[in-house]
Design a protein around this nucleic acid. Sequence first.
DNA 1: CTGAAAGCGCTTACAG
DNA 2: CTGAAAGCGCTTACAG
Lengths: 329, 329
Amino acid sequence: MSRITIADVAEALGISKTTVSRAISGKGRISEETIKKVKEYIEANNYKPNVIAKSLAQSKTYNIAMIIPADCNVSELPFFQSCMYGVCERAAERDYDVLAVYTMGNEAKNLERILINNKIDGVILSRTLVNDRLVKELRDHNLPFVAIGSTEDEQIVRVDHDHRSACRELTSFILQSVHDRVALIGGNNTHMVTRMRYLGFTDAIKAEGLKLHPELIFLNAETPESIEDITEELLRRNAECIVCMDDMICSKVLQKLSRDHVSVPERVKVASFYNSRLLDTHVPAVTSLDFDVQELGTRAADVLLDMIAGKDVPGVTLLPYRITVRETV
Amino acid sequence: MSRITIADVAEALGISKTTVSRAISGKGRISEETIKKVKEYIEANNYKPNVIAKSLAQSKTYNIAMIIPADCNVSELPFFQSCMYGVCERAAERDYDVLAVYTMGNEAKNLERILINNKIDGVILSRTLVNDRLVKELRDHNLPFVAIGSTEDEQIVRVDHDHRSACRELTSFILQSVHDRVALIGGNNTHMVTRMRYLGFTDAIKAEGLKLHPELIFLNAETPESIEDITEELLRRNAECIVCMDDMICSKVLQKLSRDHVSVPERVKVASFYNSRLLDTHVPAVTSLDFDVQELGTRAADVLLDMIAGKDVPGVTLLPYRITVRETV
DNA sequence: CTGAAAGCGCTTACAG
DNA sequence: CTGAAAGCGCTTACAG
């Protein structure tokens, strides 16, 4: 029942463990014939290398970690789930496994545990914060990592969507059909993505030669209650269009409007800087930005595994996005 | 920069590696004094054991796997995210890490990879299927695992909510305020949980001495479109209450009813066998069953880690639930 | 209570 | 092209 080892293979074939090892890994000079002999025996006798032993010999774990924020309402966002799925899929293809590591806010505690235990070869950050402690920790440890999201330090390898440009484009589009009272509701402003979306929004306003209406901009809207209050307030302030930074905010806004019998888009237009299946079946359909989140995970995994393998990787990988114009604008 | 090993500690203290190892693990006879000396040195010099080496020596990995279904609309369900979070939290407390493994439907491919690579000491199944291949595979491999969900094989260690009883209770409650035309919309019927909820529903009907209305029962409702069609059909068939098996179904039903201006609960009552934050802010509030999913993950991790440690564990752990009566019934 | 030695199953300079 | 040997950093019978 216990598994066959490299020593068993060597003995059976009358060759050394060294040779078997080389035949399997393909490293070093070795004859085609020996390789074939070894591969055949291995196949026939179902030899599987012990990854742990390999780990110890090579100081490589064949594991990466995916850092997921553990803030309370994150579990409502399909983003992390989809992204994680993309990461795991590509990692599995490359014979890597993925540890799920949750971190609370800007704490590095759980990451530290895993770094100390030496259980991973690299890390994917699924979100970046202003003044991000995880980034610092990873840099200090000198472990390969890629960030999904913008970073203050330009040296850091990133795979991301260009949120700033995407939000600028969507806002510009909205401004074509609106006089100028465009409102913005955004989430936690310590998230880099919130800042980028905000910048994209203001870029567009400036580009159109309009001026910003600070009384129409609300950030750090994190609870359903606050989003509803803000929505009411924005109607009072005669917003022509409410732009939501993500679909969680958007769905709360739409719920509130529908409950108050405010018609969309007649009385007020609505758009979202993000689109997930949360809004898929909403009627009227919401104008929004489309990102392929699973692909984001896949690409991030590719870049990280390339780094680990010692290949050169691009400093920044930006994936394409789409504006989806629908009935709410 | 490279880390200090057990040999360094032994040398510095003028004792053997054996003794250092024992002082750390607490196994075998060893003097209090030596333990203290070693612990102090370790603390002062920041020695951290190499988990990989420990793995190889003990054939233990200090990793478990969490199996997550990769069906297309699963990423909308907060269930797996919350459950995973609970698992990771408890695992981390016990110095274990969690590999995320996605499996498509009833395929065992990704699980097999990880079993072959010997990267885990145990597995948590976050969902069970009728005729579950993963269960078979795990039994064959003789690896400790716990199922979150019902299983056909009674021998399998489970941590779960008693969905059958919970659904029976909620249905009985509904039947107090309804003549007898209670409808049921359920999801994929190859999921054990769907079967359990169905049984609970019929238990209640029978207990009240009523008869089942097959024309009011729809299972395998998996797309938003089909749920909307079913909702329409149920109104036509004069359902007095629509019971939804989960909150994804429920939110689609409510969306449909609201769009068609069907008033709840006046024209038709609505209840859900599951409650997540998806429905939190819905108005009117939905009568539903409340499960603590994170706790489910925590307990599952505890049971699994106990199994791995060789402790006796209960065959079935059932967690409490609550019926939350709100405006829709 | 402590230690020398073998072992976990690989990889990899080094030598031939 | 191939092999003997040392090494990765721990644990654990065995002996004292």
